[in-house]
Design a protein around this nucleic acid. Structure first.
Length: 813
RNA sequence: GCGGCAGUGGUGGAACGGUAGACACGCUACCUUGAGGGGGUAGUGCCCUACGGGUGUGGAGGUUCAAAUCCUCUCUGCCGCACCA
């Protein structure tokens, strides 16, 4: 009877659903595995990237279930966000309706692929029940001083009409729409992620060997820790006067205090208060003032690409150790947002300072020995550095920091590139930030019993402004503190807040979802996620935020977990014609169409066979046919298994071909543990199963066939579950799918072995010897077989690698 | 510039330091079929004077009895960060 994927896939998906086969066990004394693939955004339809992501996770979940673990393998929907609003504008449809309709459709698509997700733990992040707990966490963070509201310069995306976090700005442009971001001064809510910078950095060590190196590196770079000296430059007497007595000094930061005697100028960012003062009080000539203003108004991106540009400010500072006067400039390469927006410049030992000094004819003073030419940015012995001359850089750094600390004019300090996380979004389709503005009490968090603060339904999304702002009544509320009339906050939370704690929500027993956000005991049992699977594009954003949230939740007492994701697998993209599949390029392959034509098992088999999961996968229609062919072949050959259970086989009595077949079958079995538990090289396991089937086909022993099919179906069930279940039920009553099959050593024992004979490491010929042959016998055979290459040379060494080869080392006589 | 990853047939990709190219796709020939599709058998890195031999994992060195694999340098590609003091 022919292979009919449609029929058997429908049949098994129903059986699994009826059996509740994918729910984790209630018993927390059992060994557990938490397998998590990153949840999807409900954009409308699934794409091949989803198929790959969930095929990998599903294979692991199914494997561990078979190994008798209690397995949590959940799915949900990252459901807030911009596309829903854009769709609302376009189709005049409420974002919620659009979102939930998409979820319903995509849920069916995922089910049609046979993925073994827990049904009871599914949720969407836009569910009011999810929002409720998130709002409570946000309030707690506020109470603990981790969340604050502040007016600063923000990244503003005009098309998206919202503020963006630093992490969401890529090369100066919006990560979603690609428009260049503008800088605007406006109030917003911030989460103090920098407070956890050190732990986020240090704990990356715990993930070494378990997360891909490049993700660890990217996070390290992003946090960007640097240690050095922070001190203040005192303004000279005249300069203070010029500045109307408003300023006495300003702070600078350096990672190279050992070069401090080489300072020949100092530079301020164009936005620095002193520069602003000088401009406002017309203390600079008009052309210079205008040029500086132009720099201040240009984007960081433009400044990064611009030529070095700067102007002397006509003021100077006193060198803290030498007492010399140092001229102060403003320069376009000084960032306002880092290290106080001011630098000490050491042109001899810093490339930027050097370029600038050369350009403007400023003095260059070497204070570190080493390197042939300037600038020399390495370390070495100090020269012309007062009492520190002849000291090595490392010692000098320490000593100079000490001096500053003793004199109370500076201190050793640490700076981070990481900035606090701006979570305000001026959009409708997000979780409302649960605060109230009261004229008397100021910023007040909403009472917990009033949560969730939900979105108004009666809105018209136009893309102009924030619908919460323009809604006639939604904003109006009473102050939770004094009870007077007040205004509700109209900003909503960044959607990355939702994806930062969803792994804890899944872990919490759904029976407790009404009464708890995260159940501590459940979280401690299930977390960390044993294997997390997702795209590399989240290397910084989501993975950093989720790590941070985990630590915050831990410190709130909601769990005892330090890191959320024990192991991370970053899957490669799915390409077609060398490019990422995308609608705009028109190179997509629709999973639904693929399933309709070949069935879910073929889709899953192809996607796991075509490339190792970490690598990019190039789509290939004929290779899909190949996967389909293999399943059909397996389906047809399975009939040759006539025993209803794993047969006892007397190995020594088998034909050579049968022995070979058994060896291949057990090779695959042996390989499977490593593949499912560590390497995830599903492609090699599938290849091993193909080899085994090919070898079985070359022999006729029914017991060997039965054993082979029994094992192959067991090994492939996590990959092609429908076919494997169907055949297993028919042949073995599914008994082969719920057992751990022991490896039989006897299968690998061979009567004779074929060894390669190499001369000086080059393969020349082969010998076949009895398995018990002694080293002498093997060498004699090898010399005999290789006699042709041994003429006229002298044999100086002989090496036997058991079961592999014989190497004869010769040299000219 | 800094950091990470990767370079193996026509293609996707295999190879605990031990016979390079498993497995699959494609291709060629033959068989089966009325054709198409499907199935089967054999072959398929490159070169040569071809039942034999040479050569071969981006390139150059090195370690080793033995290197795709380890070390050094170098080239190329992809990705991330990027005037962070």
């Amino acid at each position: 009877m022919g292979y009919n994927p449609k029929e058997i896939e429908k049949k098994w998906q129903k059986i699994w659903e009826d059996e509740g086969a994918f729910e984790p066990l209630e018993d927390q004394s059992r060994d557990k595995k938490y397998i998590l693939s990153m949840f999807p955004y409900p954009s409308g339809r699934i794409h091949m990237g989803h198929v790959r992501n969930y095929a990998i996770g599903d294979a692991l979940a199914r494997y561990y279930r078979k190994r008798d673990y209690s397995v949590l393998h959940p799915i949900g929907w990252d459901a807030f966000g911009m596309p829903a609003e854009n769709a609302a504008i376009k189709h005049k449809l409420h974002p919620g309706k659009w979102t939930y309709e998409n979820i319903d459709y995509m849920r069916k698509e995922l089910a049609s692929l046979g993925f073994s997700f827990s049904k009871s733990r599914e949720f969407a992040t836009c569910d009011p029940l999810y929002t409720r707990w998130e709002q409570e966490f946000i309030i707690k963070m506020f109470e603990e001083g981790l969340l604050y509201r502040e007016s600063t310069t923000v990244n503003w995306c005009e098309p998206c009409h919202t503020v963006l976090a630093n992490e969401q700005v890529e090369e100066g442009c919006c990560w979603r729409c690609g428009t260049e971001v503008q800088h605007r001064e406006m109030p917003g809510y911030y989460i103090d992620i920098v407070k956890y910078a050190d732990e986020l950095l240090d704990d990356l060590k715990l993930l070494e060997g378990k997360w891909p190196n490049r993700v660890l590196t990217m996070q390290r770079n992003w946090i960007g820790k640097s240690q050095g000296l922070e001190f203040s430059f005192e303004l000279s007497e005249e300069s203070r006067k010029k500045l109307g007595g408003k300023f006495e000094s300003y702070q600078v930061f350096t990672t190279r205090p050992d070069t401090i005697y080489g300072v020949t100028y100092s530079a301020l960012a164009a936005e620095h208060p002193i520069v602003k003062y000088l401009i406002e009080h017309q203390l600079l000539d008009p052309d210079t003032a205008e040029a500086i203003s132009r720099i201040a108004n240009s984007s960081e991106r433009d400044r990064a690409q611009a030529e070095k540009e700067g102007y002397p400010l006509g003021i100077d500072v006193i060198h803290p150790l030498t007492g010399e006067k140092i001229p102060v400039w403003t320069a376009n390469f000084v960032l306002a947002s880092y290290g106080g927006g001011a630098v000490m410049a050491v042109p001899a030992h810093d490339e930027r300072d050097f370029d600038f000094a050369t350009q403007y004819g400023l003095p260059i003073k070497r204070v570190i020995e080493g390197g042939e030419t300037l600038p020399y940015t390495g370390t070495g012995a100090l020269i012309e550095s007062g009492r520190f001359s002849c000291t090595e850089s490392a010692d000098a750094k320490e000593a100079i920091i000490n001096i500053f600390e003793e004199r109370g004019i500076g201190k050793g300090t640490t700076n981070y590139k990481l900035r606090n996380w701006g979570v305000s979004r001026q959009r409708y389709w997000g979780a409302p930030i649960p605060f109230v503005h009261c004229d008397d009490c100021g910023l007040v968090p909403e009472k917990v019993e009033n949560l969730p603060i939900t979105l108004p339904e009666d809105v018209e999304i136009t893309g102009e402004g924030n619908p919460l702002e323009s809604h006639p009544t939604w904003k109006q509320c009473l102050c939770p503190q004094c009870g007077k009339e007040a205004r509700r906050e109209t900003d909503t939370l960044d959607t990355f807040v939702q994806s930062s704690w969803y792994q804890f929500r899944y872990a919490t027993d759904p029976k407790k979802w009404e009464s708890e956000g995260i159940d501590r005991e459940d979280a401690n049992y299930w977390l960390p996620v044993d294997q997390y699977i997702g795209g590399i594009e989240h290397a910084i954003l989501h993975l950093l935020y989720a790590r941070f949230f985990t630590k915050v939740l831990r410190d709130m007492g909601l769990c005892d977990v330090d890191e959320p994701f024990e192991r991370l697998l970053t899957q490669g993209m799915v390409l077609k014609d060398g490019a990422k599949m995308s609608k705009s390029k028109g190179n997509t392959v629709d999973p639904d169409a693929l399933i309709a034509k070949y069935g879910a098992d073929t889709a899953r088999l192809f996607i796991l066979f075509a490339a190792p999961p970490q690598k990019e996968l190039e789509w290939n229609d004929s290779a899909v046919e190949g996967a389909f062919r293999f399943i059909k072949k397996l389906y047809g050959r399975a009939e040759k298994a006539t025993h209803r259970e794993l047969p006892a086989i007397e190995h020594s009595k088998l034909s050579a071909a049968s022995k070979e077949a058994r060896a291949k079958v057990y090779d695959a079995l042996k390989k499977s543990t490593d593949v499912y538990e560590s390497s995830f090289a599903f492609n090699t396991l599938i290849a091993a199963c193909m080899e085994a089937l090919n070898a079985l086909d070359k022999q006729e022993d029914e017991a060997v066939w039965s054993e082979g099919v029994y094992i192959i179906l067991n090994l492939l069930e996590p990959i092609i579950p429908h076919v494997a279940s169907e055949l297993s039920e028919r042949l073995f009553g599914r008994a082969n799918l719920s057992v751990t099959i022991p490896l039989l050593d006897e299968v690998f024992v061979q009567d004779s072995v074929t060894l390669a004979v190499t001369i000086n490491g080059k393969k020349r010929t082969e010998i076949t010897v009895s398995a018990e042959a002694s080293k002498e016998e093997i060498l004699a055979a090898a010399r005999e077989a290789g006699s042709k290459w041994l003429e006229g040379v002298s044999l100086i060494k002989e090496i036997v690698v058991p079961g592999k080869l014989v190497n004869l080392v010769v040299k000219p006589a």
